[in-house]
Design a protein around this nucleic acid. Structure first.
Length: 492
RNA sequence: CGGGGUGUAGCGUAGCCCGGUUAUCGCGCCACGUUUGGGACGUGGAGGCCGCAGGUUCGAAUCCUGCCACCCCGACCA
């Protein structure tokens, strides 16, 4: 399995592709750009969903479901929005097939052309706001705070498993508020929910900030984002939250009667994270031995492998293993006792290692004699013998430790990979080296584009409070005085 | 959608330049036996429209044309 597995230093993207497939997370499908998420990969995604869903509900949101198909005319109601997505929309034009003339298959029935073509949703603002219009009459109907778990389609030229696929899974939150302040607070709140989740559950440290105008979501006034740094020094946008102002309320004519009896446009937000988080997870923690999963997202916390020479030994070991399994499961862990006799222990060790199972316990004849087990941790690849009576406690301690140490390790990597530069030569060298590069920027799209052209680096984010920054510096490209100290990187 | 590369068994490959018996090897798979503290070994077995469609030829995995898919590098993006 991990034999002939590409090392990160040899070819990082090959390493990633092989890891995703060999760890049984996902595979490519016959449909261009679309992926098949396999049970093991989906189990990780389900853990992410479960935690996020809990957080959304705790912050007052309700789940709902809106159609996959959006009437083409809806999409064009908000000008910036349609501009942003038009180039990557799949369109449904017909609703029926018929047998082909030569009898060898089916063809689209030209008679079954749709009056109005349907767009497969690239995101759902328009169809949701079309409903909000019907739902919202008075200030008493506000706020409306909806989330939906769904698939969306964005026709991509180049795709990579989890990182960019034509169809992907995500959640999209859509809220409507009476005041600007409330909407801005909502967008900021959800950004914090994401950051909290990504850092504490995925053990992936993130920077929080806002996007420049050119990187902003199509139709938003402000896009808040969290950015993570991958091991190859490239940044990955892990989640976004948008303050949409009144753009969609205007486009869909969503007004409410205020307490004072005035007719007012409502204020909007939307926010989402996708299966792309799986890519962030993989590229933050995994190593040349395969996947590394933080305990909070691991579908299997502990794998127990018996080592035996005869049936008698297996029985004695199984008794101990099953007792331990029950004890750990009673405390909420997922434990796999792998007593298959079709694979040898060494093979199983490698398999669980490759699949990122945080802890592995081996029980053999020597352990039976000494009353111990061998406990191995995935993140450090270290092993130790532990008294059987203490192993349960030790497992919990170690899982916490692994969760924390993965985060600490990733944070240290990010800090070591963050540079602050003051002039163009330093900037070029820093971007070439990789990682986050902090530099002053004069605030113009022109300079931003020029920098992107010259170095492939983009502004990943501006600090949340950048507008309040009193410090002055010189733009790294133009030398103009500016107070905008922003973070650049090459990005996924 | 531009430039480059690759398509041979589930996976990785030899053969292709220079056309010619039954398409090579490894891994994996199946059966039986021996094994089991870091990817076991033996014996036997199954598995191929040589990416697809045309063409050249007595004869094509091999030569020609077109198409498709995947990978890498650009443009676009979560």
């Amino acid at each position: 399995m991990a034999k002939d597995f590409t090392k990160r230093s040899q070819d990082y993207s090959k390493w990633y592709n092989e890891l995703v497939v060999k760890a049984d997370l996902a595979e490519t499908s016959d449909v261009r750009g679309a992926m098949i998420i396999k049970p093991y990969g989906f189990a990780v995604w389900e853990k992410m969903q479960a935690e996020l869903d809990k957080k959304f509900k705790q912050t007052g949101h309700q789940n709902a479901y809106f159609p996959l198909f959006i009437p083409k005319s809806y999409l064009s109601k908000e000008a910036d929005h349609v501009d942003g997505f038009a180039k990557e929309c799949a369109v449904v034009t017909h609703y029926r097939l018929k047998n082909s003339e030569d009898g060898k298959g089916v063809v689209v029935d030209p008679k079954a052309k749709l009056e109005e073509e349907l767009v497969v949703r690239p995101t759902s603002e328009t169809i949701i706001w079309n409903s909000f219009k019907k739902w919202i009459r008075s200030y008493r109907d506000l706020p409306v705070k909806i989330n939906q778990w769904a698939n969306v389609v964005r026709w991509e030229m180049r795709t990579r498993l989890f990182l960019r696929t034509s169809e992907f899974l995500w959640q999209e939150g859509h809220t409507a508020h009476a005041t600007k302040q409330e909407a801005v607070e909502e967008a900021e709140l959800m950004l914090n929910v994401y950051a909290d989740f990504v850092e504490n559950f995925m053990a992936v440290p993130v920077l929080k900030g806002i996007k420049t105008e050119s990187e902003r979501f199509a139709g938003a006034l402000e896009t808040y984002c969290i950015e993570a740094l991958m091991q190859d020094g490239k940044a990955l946008q892990a989640g976004t939250s948008h303050f949409l102002g009144q753009n969609f309320a205007k486009a869909f004519d969503v007004k409410y009667a205020s307490k004072e009896g005035n007719e007012e446009l409502v204020w909007a937000t939307s926010w989402g994270v996708s299966t792309r988080l799986m890519g962030a997870l993989i590229m933050t923690h995994s190593d040349d031995h395969g996947l590394v999963l933080p305990p909070k997202l691991a579908p299997i916390h502990v794998a127990i492998v018996p080592i035996y020479r005869n049936e008698e030994q297996l029985e004695a070991i199984s008794e101990k293993a099953n007792a331990l399994k029950s004890e750990l499961e009673a405390k909420g862990l997922t434990v796999k006792y792998d007593d298959r006799d079709t694979y040898k222990p060494g093979w199983k060790f490698s398999e669980y290692e490759f699949k990122g199972v945080p802890l592995r316990i081996a029980i053999g004849p020597k352990d039976l004699e000494k009353g111990t087990v061998e406990l191995a941790r995935r993140d450090t690849l270290t092993k130790e013998f532990v008294d059987y009576n203490e192993v349960s406690q030790k497992v919990f301690t170690l899982l916490d430790e692994i969760q924390q140490s993965l985060y600490d390790r990733a944070l240290k990597f990010r800090e070591d990979s963050t540079q602050t530069v003051n002039n163009w030569d330093e900037f070029k060298a820093a971007v070439k080296k990789g990682g986050f590069v902090n530099a002053y920027w004069d605030g113009t799209a022109e300079t931003e584009n020029k920098i992107k052209e010259l170095t492939k680096a983009t502004i990943r984010l501006m600090p949340l409070d950048s507008k309040a920054n009193a410090e002055q510096g010189e733009c790294v490209l133009t030398g103009k005085k500016t107070n905008l100290l922003v973070t650049f990187a090459r990005a996924y």
